[in-house]
Design a binder for these strands. Structure first.
Lengths: 174, 174
DNA sequence: GGAGAATATCTCGACATCAAGATAAATTGG
DNA sequence: CCAATTTATCTTGATGTCGAGATATTCTCC
């Protein structure tokens, strides 16, 4: 059985080059993980393009969606937000500052913990993130046209397996 | 047939939350693409940790490996390097400057094009990148233990399909 | 109930990246 | 063979992120 591929991607070339230069090494892990990295890189660009239509930066979208999907009253602590977005606390403080300045979120003291703060989506923030999310899904669907429904599910499952060890434990970056 | 999953990853939680909040939307693209992004993020961290053992930063490794796998005389133009690493030209200039300062590469005029420059790996650079590459492969293999050989190939093929549209066309970022 | 550890957030300085534009050389067409 | 365009690299300024440490509050447990 031959699994002929329509054409090469950059990782095919990269792996072929390594096999030439280091035939003593098994570079097969790159077939998976270099593709993940490179695809993520391309995705970032596509996402950025999708968001400019809605006057949002990628980092803004990441924070706003975390709040949006938490449900009413669209409110989370900075700590919860940094765990959701995989950035450090200093970065999150900065992001919240800027989102506050542009009127998309507000900061409130946590009534149950005086160390804490709660970040809440404003009406404007809610509108923006909902619009941008619909646009993002449309673009993402386009990126996936090469795969059938069954293949998409298979891919999701395989990625899931790789992700569990990371997400099951704590998550780092504080 | 039931494909029961051992446990949840963060994307399972994220998708479930969206289905609760926006049952009108089909968020299935996230099952694939959010996993790609998050996995890439975790990978970056793992790679960073692997490289510190060899006194290298991730960005240094990216440039040095591109040179390494190009074969003797381990020499590429800045333009070729930026296409290989998906960064902009300003970034690449900066990287080459710093790699030159730390003695891992040298810059030479291109004998065939006086606009051009060739970046060449030094002996030190070659040693470092070879050592780091072996270390990286070891770590990456550990990250893939959850998948059998057959599954890894399937995953690579599916990712390949998504990647081709990006890599077949030009690649952007100049 | 008090000392010490843990937690939550913020501050600040260093730094890598990007985007846009500058410079220089090569290529193309008339 | 010259002008216009394209290509290759570098420069510059703005910005987002990280990492380490500061501050304030809560938790643990003796």
């Amino acid at each position: 059985m031959s699994h002929s591929r329509a054409s090469e991607d950059e990782v095919d070339r990269l792996v072929a080059a390594w096999r030439q230069e280091r035939p003593d090494l098994d570079v097969s892990p790159l077939e998976v993980l270099s593709r993940v990295s490179r695809l993520s890189r391309h995705l970032d660009r596509a996402r950025r393009a999708a968001f400019t239509e809605h006057d949002l930066e990628s980092w803004e979208f990441d924070v706003l969606t975390a709040l949006r999907r938490s449900g009413k009253p669209y409110e989370l602590s900075p700590g919860a937000l940094l765990r959701a977005t995989l950035v450090t606390s200093g970065t999150m403080t900065n992001r919240i500052d800027r989102l506050t300045a542009s009127g998309l979120v507000t900061r409130h003291p946590d009534p149950e913990d005086r160390r804490g703060v709660l970040v809440r989506l404003t009406t404007l923030g809610l509108e923006r993130v909902d619009a941008a999310f619909v646009g993002l899904l449309r673009r993402e669907r386009e990126l996936l046209v090469g795969l059938g429904e069954r293949e998409q599910r298979a891919l999701a499952t395989l990625l899931h397996t790789l992700l569990v060890p990371f997400d099951a434990s704590d998550g780092g970056a504080h």
